[in-house]
Write a protein that binds this DNA or RNA. Structure first.
Lengths: 341, 341
DNA sequence: TTGTACGCGTTATCAA
DNA sequence: TTGATAACGCGTACAA
């Protein structure tokens, strides 16, 4: 690998001059500049970013910790973050935790060793105090939490209003004619799951509607749990006519369960869900869904993070960005129970 | 940020000893080791990986260049690569090119500056000679091409047998009773697109079936092009009964087009496609699809790449790994034209 | 405007 | 087994 020294030798100038040409911070005489540029091209010199990072004490890398890139919600998020990052010459180092706390700890530790300039974090569920995050912050590494906020932590964040989104969605189900409505929650250790449940319960209570205890099931945001909970509900004696499901993956699981029983949506069970990836929209049933601005989560989060990094303001009060959601009403939430047909 | 020097001072030993404790390469006396470990914990020392990289001349980072993480095919691939990488303590630096050649060049250049130890590459379509890849290889940075092989380049690769996969799929359509079959190809500058078309044409010819020129459309692997080509075909006077589509995204586009015309699959137009992401399988219509081992592309590719890196065998003849595909026959390819009902 | 020399935090070599 | 020290490649004072 060519070094700055070799470039200097070929161009017949000093390393300082080459460096000045590259960074552009200091003006260099036109002739020398020319010679340097030629030398760079000649030996295909690529500035060693590792050495530069060591010297400058910053890597121009952002760490990004998510649960699973395979979930369209997160792949959109990563895409958004990457785009915002690249625009300011940052690169992304991505980790999947599968929502496992140990993995998050490992990722954070690794990222600190790698000396990333900041971290985008979708926290994993946990009962433990988020001391690993606190320590990271204390070490002067900015962290922006995306989608979820760890309980009892003051930190920059980009979120949505889960309570209101859930409320609107459940109201819609009621307006459709549904009275017997159930819910599959996400991992209850997560704030988002709690809030979606809260929105559901408040709305049902306000409408004076009973919720059978069998209709409230706690999943973990993965499709297998949706499948499992869906089955359990369908095996009950008293069936709801509609289900509010706390994310897309679990909704797919429920659809799978319906299929097993040879049941249909919405005829046998109506469904409304969080998350609304574009790819599913050409298929049937069309899902009534609360769309979250997944891409913006990443984009906005990265922008905020970089701002924090470059302004070096530590100890500021946390910035909390709220992004809007939107309820898309489609066929899966229709009220058309079989018995009426 | 704490340094190894501070650890040494606190533990009352030399930096060399601390280093030995950390890397574990040299045996250190039990008492000193103890003291070092305590000091590390006390000041929360995280070894500076940047400095280590500079010294060791390797970063334990892999570059990964794909077209779009948002496509489930690639997110699976990235996930696989990440898992294989982490198993051997490598991290992934990911780039989306949107299949644009300039972005690929930028990415490669950036990755070389970052001194990644190797690169996983899904090449973008291009007429140009892949000199940027050749130069990278020449610089001693191993590259493994995933899914697609750039024309005229000897390089390690992980691919599938596109010709045979397409052949099997088209044979299935014929066996179903279809005689009027069209195709939407991918970007024709890409080997995969060419091969899928080739498999299609060979099979049709072998079966003595005519292919209307209007039924052969060239897309670009993105859903918009599937939508566009789908519309054009549906607007024609002579309609095919089935369409072989070269990837998942374009298939969604075609479904969208069918929807616009209030037409149904497979009743009005049967469909078979490349790629088979799990999430779509609970929806209708169920797509007849050729599943590719997306995860394995990444996993196997990363393993191969790391092997190359660590064995340092340069100038070896390229290794070409072939992964199996599988045809999943579902309802979207059924032969049940409306006129017969 | 240009060149020299130092230091960023490690690891490896060598001598003790 | 341990400690001192020389790189790794770059950016940047500082001197010229």
């Amino acid at each position: 690998m060519a070094t700055i020294k070799e470039v200097a030798k070929i161009a017949g100038v000093s390393v300082g001059t080459v460096s000045n040409v590259i960074t552009g911070s200091v003006t260099v005489g036109a002739d020398r500049k020319e010679r340097v540029l030629n030398a760079i091209r000649e030996i295909e010199y690529h500035p060693n970013h590792v050495a530069r990072s060591l010297k400058l004490q910053r890597t121009k890398m952002l760490g990004m910790i998510i649960s699973d890139i395979t979930n369209p919600f997160f792949s959109q998020m990563v895409r958004g973050a990457e785009e915002a990052a690249r625009k300011q010459n940052y690169l992304l180092l991505t980790f999947n935790t599968d929502d496992r706390f140990e993995r998050e700890e490992q990722a954070l530790s690794e990222l600190r060793s790698r000396r990333v300039d900041g971290i985008l974090l979708v926290v994993a569920p946990s009962q433990a105090k988020p001391s690993h995050i606190v320590e990271t912050l204390k070490a002067g590494i900015p962290v922006v939490c995306l989608d979820r906020i760890p309980p009892g932590l003051e930190v920059d964040s980009v979120t949505v209003d889960n309570i209101n989104a859930a409320r609107d969605c459940v109201r819609h189900l009621i307006a459709q004619g549904h009275r017997k409505i159930g819910i599959i929650t996400g991992t209850m250790a997560l704030q988002t799951a709690q809030q979606r449940l809260q929105g559901f319960e408040e709305t049902m209570r306000a409408a004076g509607l009973e919720v059978d205890r069998d209709w409230v099931r706690h999943g973990d945001f993965r499709s297998e749990s949706g499948y499992q909970m869906g089955r359990e509900i369908l095996l009950g004696k008293n069936l709801p006519t509609a289900l509010f499901i706390s994310n897309n993956l679990m909704a797919y699981g429920v659809l799978q369960a319906l299929d097993d029983f040879n049941l249909h949506c919405p005829g046998d069970l109506a469904i409304a869900t969080f998350d609304d990836p574009a790819i599913t929209q050409v298929f049937r049933p069309r899902l009534t869904a609360i769309s979250q601005p997944a891409y913006s989560f990443g984009y906005t989060g990265a922008e905020l993070l970089i701002q924090r990094i470059e302004s070096k303001k530590t100890g500021e009060s946390p910035i909390a960005i709220r992004l809007p959601t939107e309820l898309h009403i489609r066929e899966s939430s229709a009220f058309e129970p079989r018995t009426l047909q």
